[in-house]
Structures are given as C-alpha cells and as structure tokens.
C-alpha cells in the first residue's frame, strides 16, 4: 500500500527552490545593501571596518543626509523618472496596435509575428545599443536626411547621437517587446462576442475600444508598464553609450558611486531609494488602475 505524501511536502518541493534562490540572491544582498548604506566608505573605496580601532561600532546616517542635502541627486531621480515614464508611454502607444494586430491575425501567423517581436533578444543587448550609434551617427543616412530638411528651413544641423533623443529612442527600442508580450497575452483572450454585443447595443468603433477593449486590457497594460518602467528607471548602459553629458540617469550615478568614486555606502543609499521608488510607483499605478476600473464599471465614467 502506498502512503500518500503529506500536502506540505509537495508545496515545499515546488516553492522551495525558487524561494531559496530569492533569499540568497535578492533578500540577503538587499539586507547587505541596507547595512552598507549606514556605514562609512573605506579610505581606498569599499567599506571602512564596522568596528573601528577604538572599539566603537561605526554606523552613520551621513550618506542619507548627503542625499537630502544635495539637490542634484533628487534632480537626477526626477529626470530618470521622466525618461522612464516617456519610455513607458511611447512603448504603450506603439505596442498596443501591434499587440492588437498579432492577437487578431490568423492563428497560424501569430507564432511567426511573436517570433519577430522577440527576435532582437537573439543578439546581445550591448551590440544592439551600439548599433544605434551607427544608425544615429552624424554620417548615417538618418542624420543626413534630418539635417537636410532642417537646412531647408535655414536651421543649424543638430546631432542625433549623444542626446536625450538617442537615449529615448534606444530605451523604447529595447523595452518594446516587454510591453508587446503581456499586452498580446491579454488581448488574445478577449471575447469577440463582447464587441459584437457592444456594437449591437449602439457602440461605435471608438466606443467599443474605449469602453470594452481598453478597460479589459488594463491588466496587460499594467504588466507591460511595470516591465518597461522598472528597468528603464534604473538603466545605465544606454545613457552611457548614447547619451550626452546631460543625460546621466540615476543608474549611471549608482554605477559611478560603486565603480569610479568607490563610495559604496552612498551608492547603496541611491540603490535602495531607487528600489523603493520603483516599488511605490508600481503599487500606486496598480491602485489608480483599480479605481479606474471601478469607475468605468459602475458606469460613472
């Protein structure tokens, strides 16, 4: 006779490994960062000893007061927020029609279209970013065309590369699939009979979209927005490679603190604030979204 394994065993076998992974590679490092943020930077980078020669425990709020007393960092956070927000909105505007198109296309074409969406992942991220250096470079066709048109209006030529424009274009390009995929997954499940019913009840094409399709797609919109906004908020490679001197984002500053200035405690503070802000914004968006759905639902909108 077989003895049934207790239910808790199965539960732990399934959820144990990922839980362990998250504890070791997320929770523990986060705690180390929290601790590091209260310590003093070492003379040659890294961290000063936790217990100094006099035997006192060396914990300090210096890094936090520095963040609050130097407005430069708040400004960079705000700038990073705007870059991430613009990226998210542009991705959403571009991805929505694309995801709709894929969801409405014939089943046998969908796999191919989805493959095309994820095709860029087949080449290395940095290579794709460097490719934009060529596309946006001063001697490339795009820059020549733009500046040619500008010259017609008597305008000075503008550089496309090493600009906020280049950073945003590449941010959108890199993150677009993360918006398309969750939107597609949502739109693909929509029930055509709801749209037929709406049309039957007198709704125009725009009303069918705005009152039925869009509200029902909000879970996909949130998922995609979170997947785009959070990494875009902390990105450093793209501004490093394609941005000008004014396009340093918070990710670049954090990288700088760890690798160049070697001020680990201050880098930790910035990192923690970034994490908390990203989580708070995601939570806020979800909350606003819930209220929005409720309003559309009760028919007050």
């Amino acid at each position: 006779m077989h003895k049934r394994a207790p239910a808790w065993l199965g539960k732990w076998l399934v959820s144990g490994p990922p839980l362990l992974y998250l504890v070791v590679f997320f929770a523990v490092p986060s705690l180390i960062m929290v601790l590091a943020s209260f310590r003093t930077p070492g003379e040659f980078g890294g961290l000063a000893p936790l217990v100094d020669e006099s035997g006192a425990v060396d914990l300090t709020l210096d890094s936090y007061t520095r963040l609050l007393s130097e407005p430069l960092y708040a400004e960079i956070f705000v700038k990073s927020f705007w870059y991430a927000l613009v990226t998210t909105v542009v991705c959403l505007v571009l991805a929505y029609p694309l995801a709709t198109l894929i969801a409405k296309s014939e089943r046998r074409h969908r796999d191919l279209l989805l493959l095309l969406v994820i095709l860029p992942f087949w080449s290395n991220f940095l290579i794709r970013v460097y490719a934009w250096m060529i596309i946006l470079g001063p001697n490339a066709a795009l820059a020549r065309a733009v500046n040619g048109v500008l010259a017609l209006f008597g305008h000075e030529p503008v550089p496309l590369l090493f600009s906020a424009f280049a950073v945003l274009v590449c941010l959108v390009y890199v993150h677009l699939p993360f918006m398309v995929l969750p939107l597609y997954a949502n739109l693909e499940k929509h029930d055509q009979s709801l749209l037929d019913a709406a049309q039957d009840l007198g709704a125009s094409a725009w009303q069918r979209f705005w009152r039925i399709t869009f509200p029902l797609s909000l879970p996909g919109v949130y998922a995609g927005s979170a997947l785009v906004f959070i990494p875009a908020f902390g990105i450093f490679a793209i501004p490093d490679i394609l941005g000008g001197p004014d396009d340093s984002l918070i990710g670049n500053v954090i990288k700088q603190q760890f690798l160049e200035t070697r001020d680990w405690p201050f880098g930790s503070v910035l990192s923690l604030v970034l994490t908390v802000l990203a989580l708070a914004l995601a939570g806020l968006a979800a909350w606003i979204g819930q209220r929005g759905v409720g309003r559309l639902a009760s028919g007050d909108a």
Partner: peptide
C-alpha cells in the same frame, strides 16, 4: 449593426465582465 433599432440577446449572454449589472 450599431445603427439598427434591433437588439440581440446572445447565446453566451455577452455581458461586460468589467461592468456591474447597472453598468
């Protein structure tokens, strides 16, 4: 369809799931 004074009750009912009965 939206311009006809004709209404349909669908087999699947096709109620809008994100709206209340009132909605």
């Amino acid at each position: 369809p939206e311009g006809r004074p004709v209404r349909t009750v669908f087999q699947s009912y096709a109620l809008f799931p994100h709206m209340t009965v009132q909605g």
